[in-house]
Design a protein around this nucleic acid. Structure first.
Length: 838
DNA sequence: AGCACGCCGACT
DNA sequence: GTCGGCGTGCTC
């Protein structure tokens, strides 16, 4: 197709204004378009524009920069349309995006994709129409059956989109036919933009004003309605719900139609009254969020909390970021609430980041009670329309306090005063796929700095990075080591799995100690949490005769057995298959499950404690929007005695009746081939242990392990973070691990093993030449060597911490990757760059 | 990432 | 012959 806008170039160029546009394409370039005279006065940073990209594609992008520097090698295309009266994105956001793209080595278009709710990203679709000049009886060219079918279908509709034709005709033939018909002038093809966000509306009715203004009219109306019982009922119901004479303004607001129909009024009789001019029907825009009532719950701080708050205020005088280490149950929520209130009163905005799992819990409800409709919630399970509404809410100043998951960093804040990152150690703050592969805690600190705001990192078990920064004075540091109301820390017990096994005391993965403790807890009518960080029934199944293990066809992993659906599943690509009846290698029928997942734990518990009510919380039981909430509510209502779960149960559960926490297999957490394994084990065990015992009760924690001699257990039990930190840090320093170096991981991905490997080797050689203080490890096959039929190789880079070195190296790195991708051997290789990987 | 262009096999 | 495969180059 020819360039439709070729004739517009000269006019658009006459005043030489250009705009750099961020487009949602993964191309590491800026795209400069010319700004037409008609929009030159209006256009600015953050406006959405429509541009032609390539030969026919129309995209919406965001203006990143307006300038007068003409591109010297090409003639820019004009901006087709300015879509907004006000910018949807502010200059600070653009700055934040561009920081993120350069720090995390990705394209700014990818950041934009992550940042904008897709409701704001207008897309175009190709529409097809019969050409107005086309005459069916006299087409002027011979038509085949498919062309006739297509044209006939098309003439029955005003317009159709290309996807509809794909359903009409088999295969991909429709595209071809559309093209040929277009050439013959029988049809028109054009791009149409569609706004995806649709506001929610509500149908309401009200009494027309004449019945209120004119006395007696209503009485005579009832006369007229005699015998028409249904209509009479509608009217009576309305008058009962809305006191139209006492409060005329109430009538103006009307009544939701649904209220009438819910009370048994028929929709048709309502419509009749509307036709008669008695009622009038109208639509109003409503929010998708229920407005919680603000109950003026004051915030009350205990002396310990008050003391911590004082310290925070004092340290914010000098430091921009503070690490608040408060043990589980020390009441960080109240401190947050007080800080938030102070900042809101000064007129600034506040962002509170939470890991996704913690977002449905009581913390949100607590804060909602205090801050009411000033507070917006941004959840990852929200629909796109809901996200747009939160976005608009921030933009219009309806919400000045947002509590949300990591993507809420991208909301259009213009004057943040405080960012709080709760559970700052949580590894889910790191996004891996897709790019941008950002660490939300670190990005929050940057965002905060751009707003000249303060950042508070809260946790019971700090990440090594944050603790290190607190120790060396870069961050402030405040510690609370008393539980709220002086509740005591739980008692820890180590249960030796191997010992019990030898003595035949291990039953279905449970040691005698854990079984006995569960029983006594149940007898006291208290609740139990059982932690097992592995979902499914069993990690894998295996043939007793020859040891054959079913593996995924597309990935380099064994399949996990899920008993509930009686199938084998790949946790990496979602592949499923029926459980084999006999071994594929030797034909034996003796196939048994190996290892233990949450499903199996649930089953074992029901065998060991048949009278107990047991529930399970893991990815499989919480997929739906309110999945977590349902299980948590059941648990907190006391309808469940034992809750089994993965790390999900370590977050935000605050239940008074939990007095026992059991960790089925602590070794699974500890012995993991990763330098952070120790740190993670300390955090996870401490976190889950913190769920045991509240207020006046002291809880118990049972850790089952094969290696009770491990030093880390003693440190966890003593709550001695400091000792643990010191020892672990010495090791990290010795072996060049973060926070002493900056890690960058590069993954090459390709469908051939050899190509993926060679690409990685070539890249490594190129990287060795970069003049920067670094250590390069690999390439090595990834831990999981193949995922979704793509082979994976990894290169690890340990880089000097200085900002200058990092910036230089990253720039070089991206250049070298571009260089390699230009080589046709590696064209199909994907290079993933992961800065500060987990 | 899409998408069009271009050069080779297997069918009416 | 042509239809349709996917290698390769480009997008302001």
């Amino acid at each position: 197709m020819e360039d439709l806008f070729a004739n517009q170039y000269p006019a658009a160029n006459s005043k030489n204004l250009y705009a750099d546009i961020i487009l949602p394409v993964p191309i590491p370039k800026w795209f400069t378009y010319s700004v037409g005279l008609d929009i030159q006065d209006q256009i600015g940073i953050g406006y959405r524009v429509m541009v032609q990209f390539g030969k026919k594609k129309i995209l919406t992008g965001i203006v990143a920069k307006v300038h007068q520097k003409a591109p010297d090698v090409y003639q820019p295309k004009p901006i087709l349309d300015l879509l907004d009266d006000f910018p949807v994105v502010n200059a600070l956001q653009i700055k934040f995006w561009s920081w993120m793209s350069s720090y995390y080595c990705c394209h700014i278009g990818e950041v934009m994709n992550a940042a904008l709710p897709s409701g704001l990203k207008l897309s175009t679709e190709s529409k097809v129409q019969v050409h107005p000049d086309f005459d069916f009886d006299n087409p002027g060219f011979p038509m085949d059956d498919r062309e006739i079918l297509l044209l006939e279908t098309l003439s029955k509709h005003d317009e159709m989109n290309v996807e509809q034709f794909d359903q009409l005709l088999p295969g991909k033939t429709s595209h071809k036919i559309i093209k040929s018909l277009l050439g013959k002038g029988a049809i028109l093809v054009y791009e149409s933009v569609r706004e995806k966000y649709s506001p929610k509306t509500e149908q309401r009715v009200r009494l027309t004003s004449k019945y209120i203004k004119k006395e007696g009219l209503l009485e005579s109306l009832f006369e007229d309605l005699k015998g028409k019982e249904k209509q009479e009922a509608v009217l009576l119901k309305y008058l009962q719900q809305v006191s139209v004479f006492q409060k005329p303004e109430a009538n103006a607001k009307g009544l939701e139609k649904k209220v009438l129909t819910d009370h048994g009024c028929s929709p048709s009789s309502i419509d009749t009254l509307v036709k008669k001019g008695v009622l009038e029907s109208f639509k109003v825009l409503v929010s998708r969020f229920e407005v919680p009532s603000v109950s003026d719950h004051g915030i009350e701080l205990s002396p310990v909390q008050g003391e911590a708050l004082q310290q925070i205020h004092a340290q914010f005088e000098e430091k921009n970021t503070i690490l608040l280490q408060g043990i589980t149950g020390s009441g960080k929520t109240e401190i947050y609430a007080q800080l938030i209130q102070d900042v809101l009163q000064s007129g600034s905005q506040v962002l509170l980041l939470l890991p996704e799992i913690a977002l449905t819990t009581h913390l949100v409800h607590r804060l909602q009670k205090i801050f009411g409709d000033k507070m917006g919630v941004f959840h990852s399970k929200y629909s796109d329309n809901e996200r747009v509404e939160v976005w608009q809410g921030v933009l219009k100043g309806k919400y000045n306090f947002i509590i949300g998951v990591r993507s809420s960093l991208f909301l259009p804040f213009d004057s943040l005063g405080l960012v709080i990152v709760d559970e700052e150690h949580e590894s889910s703050y790191k996004q891996f796929d897709p790019a941008p592969r950002f660490q939300a805690r670190d990005a929050a600190i940057m965002l905060s700095w751009m707003h000249q705001a303060k950042t508070l990192l809260g946790t019971a078990t700090p990440s090594f990075e944050s603790y290190y920064n607190a120790q060396n004075g870069k961050y402030g540091y405040v510690k609370i080591d008393k539980r709220y109301g002086n509740a005591e820390l739980p008692h820890f017990f180590l249960a030796d799995i191997l010992q019990d096994k030898k003595k035949n005391l291990l039953k279905l993965d449970f040691t005698r100690l854990l079984r006995e403790k569960i029983q006594t807890t149940l007898n006291r009518q208290e609740q139990v949490l059982i932690f097992q960080n592995r979902r499914g029934y069993a990690p894998y199944i295996s043939c007793d005769e020859c040891g054959w293990i079913p593996e995924c066809e597309h990935c380099d992993v064994s399949l996990t057995y899920h008993q509930y659906q009686d199938e084998l599943r790949c946790h990496y690509c979602g592949f499923k298959e029926k459980v084999p009846i006999s071994c594929h290698a030797c034909g034996s029928q003796k196939i048994t499950t190996v290892g233990t997942g949450t499903e199996r734990i649930e089953e074992s518990l029901s065998l060991l404690f048949p009278e107990a009510r047991i529930a399970r919380m893991d990815l499989d039981t919480t997929r739906s929007k309110y999945g977590y909430q349902r299980i948590l509510e059941e648990f907190s209502a006391g309808n469940v005695d034992i809750l089994v779960g993965t790390q999900m149960i370590t977050k935000g559960l605050d239940f008074d009746k939990v007095s026992l926490v059991g960790i089925v297999d602590a070794d699974r957490i500890l012995f993991y081939p990763d330098f952070r394994a120790g740190e993670r084990a300390f955090q996870q065990i401490t976190q889950v242990a913190g769920r045991s015992g509240r207020r006046d009760k002291t809880g118990d924690v049972i850790i089952q392990t094969r290696r009770p001699d491990q030093l880390i257990f003693r440190q966890i039990i003593a709550g001695n973070y400091n000792d643990f930190y010191r020892l672990e840090m010495a090791e990290r320093k010795q072996f060049f691990y973060p926070p002493f170096v900056k890690n960058i991981k590069i993954i090459t991905k390709h469908k051939d093993f050899k190509t993926a490997e060679t690409a990685a080797k070539f890249l490594k050689n190129l990287l060795m030449d970069i003049a920067a203080k670094k250590i390069i490890l690999g390439p090595e096959k990834s831990l999981i060597g193949k995922i979704k039929n793509l082979y994976l190789f990894e290169i690890w880079i340990k880089l000097d911490r200085s900002g200058k070195v990092q910036q230089f190296f990253k720039q070089q790195l991206m250049d070298r990757i571009a260089e390699l991708q230009a080589d046709k051997r590696f064209r199909m290789v994907r290079f993933l760059v992961d800065v500060d990987p987990y």
